[in-house]
Amino acid sequence: MNIITQLVILTLSLLLVNADLYCTNLYKDFKHKCTPSMITIKSCCDLKTFIPSPGVYKMSTRTFGTSDVYCDTATDNGGWIVIQRNRKDSTVDFNKTWVDYEKGFGKLKGDFWYGLEAIHCFTQIGQWEMRVDYQKNDKTWSYLHYNQFSVGSASEEYPLTVGGFTGEGTDHFASHPLNGMKFSTLDNDNDKRGGNCASRLKSGWWYNNCELINVNEQPPDVGGNVRVLFTEMKIRPKDCNTH
């Protein structure tokens, strides 16, 4: 082995040691000094690579720019962007106008609606799934899960695409049905029933005929005769588990 080869091997070895030390120190710094709100991610799926801490993060996407999101890193392998949260007797008023539902309202660490435009921007690229976790009055938990979810554009009035039910209980999104319905608010009625379902039920939603499933209602409604204390609606890319 000549001197040049020996020098190259020595240099690479030092680089690898230094790189490993750098990554170790970076990980420790992330773990002990960084808070979730200080970290910018491209997707809640990115957190699988680092520390799976649920909370508010800054997410930068090509379609929507940089915005704060609440990442659920625990449920079903994590990677979820929480887009809605509503508690029974919530102090957040969900009886909002079209502009409010378009932009979003509430607080990410409390009850909120993330915003139709943001949800559209997230789901217009790739394939997405959606989940609704809910707590019943008896304090037990259940969920609805859909393998297909997206929201259309503002010019289309944010129509819902939802399908591929695999959750517990009954698929009330399909039984009404809500797939293909445009969004409705108190000042923009797109339902198929006479009168305004959004005004009557005091909440924006993808109404067909004043459905029995509406997680923005107060108290939130997941369909059937189930009484609910809490709902959390969340979405993630279908390839999230491969990240």
Rank of each mutant, 00 (worst) to 15 (best):
M1I: 11
N2R: 03
N2K: 05
N2S: 12
I3W: 14
T5W: 07
L7K: 13
T11Y: 08
L12G: 01
S13L: 15
L16Y: 13
V17E: 08
A19Y: 10
A19K: 06
L21M: 09
Y22W: 07
Y22G: 02
C23G: 07
Y27S: 13
Y27F: 14
F30T: 00
K31I: 13
H32R: 09
H32A: 06
T35A: 14
T35C: 12
T35F: 10
S37D: 10
S37L: 15
M38C: 00
M38Q: 09
T40D: 08
I41E: 05
I41T: 03
S43C: 06
D46Y: 00
L47G: 11
K48C: 05
T49L: 15
F50N: 02
F50Q: 04
P52F: 08
P54G: 12
S60R: 14
R62D: 07
R62E: 14
G65A: 10
T66L: 07
Y70R: 01
T73Y: 08
T73W: 10
T75E: 11
D76G: 01
W80E: 10
I81N: 14
V82S: 02
V82G: 02
N86V: 01
R87N: 15
K88Q: 10
K88C: 00
D89R: 12
D89P: 01
T91F: 08
F94N: 03
N95W: 12
K96Q: 15
K96M: 09
K96R: 15
K96W: 04
K96G: 07
W98D: 06
Y101W: 12
K103Y: 02
F105L: 09
K107S: 10
K109A: 04
D111G: 08
F112D: 05
L116Y: 04
E117Q: 10
E117Y: 02
A118I: 06
A118S: 10
F122W: 08
T123L: 09
G126K: 12
W128I: 00
E129R: 03
M130K: 13
R131K: 15
V132N: 13
D133I: 03
Q135F: 00
W141A: 02
Y146C: 12
N147F: 03
V151P: 05
V151S: 09
V151M: 13
V151E: 02
E156I: 01
Y158C: 05
Y158S: 06
V162H: 10
G167M: 04
G167F: 04
E168V: 01
T170R: 11
T170C: 04
F173I: 11
S175D: 12
H176M: 04
L178S: 11
L178A: 09
K182P: 03
K182D: 04
F183D: 03
F183M: 06
L186W: 09
R193V: 14
N196M: 09
N196W: 07
C197H: 02
A198P: 13
L201T: 07
K202S: 13
W205N: 14
W206H: 11
W206E: 05
N208D: 14
N209F: 05
C210A: 05
L212P: 00
L212D: 13
N214G: 14
V215E: 12
N216G: 13
N216F: 08
E217N: 14
D221H: 09
V222F: 07
G223T: 01
R227Y: 09
R227E: 15
V228P: 03
V228D: 04
T231S: 05
M233Q: 08
R236K: 05
K238R: 15
N241D: 09
N241S: 08
T242N: 10
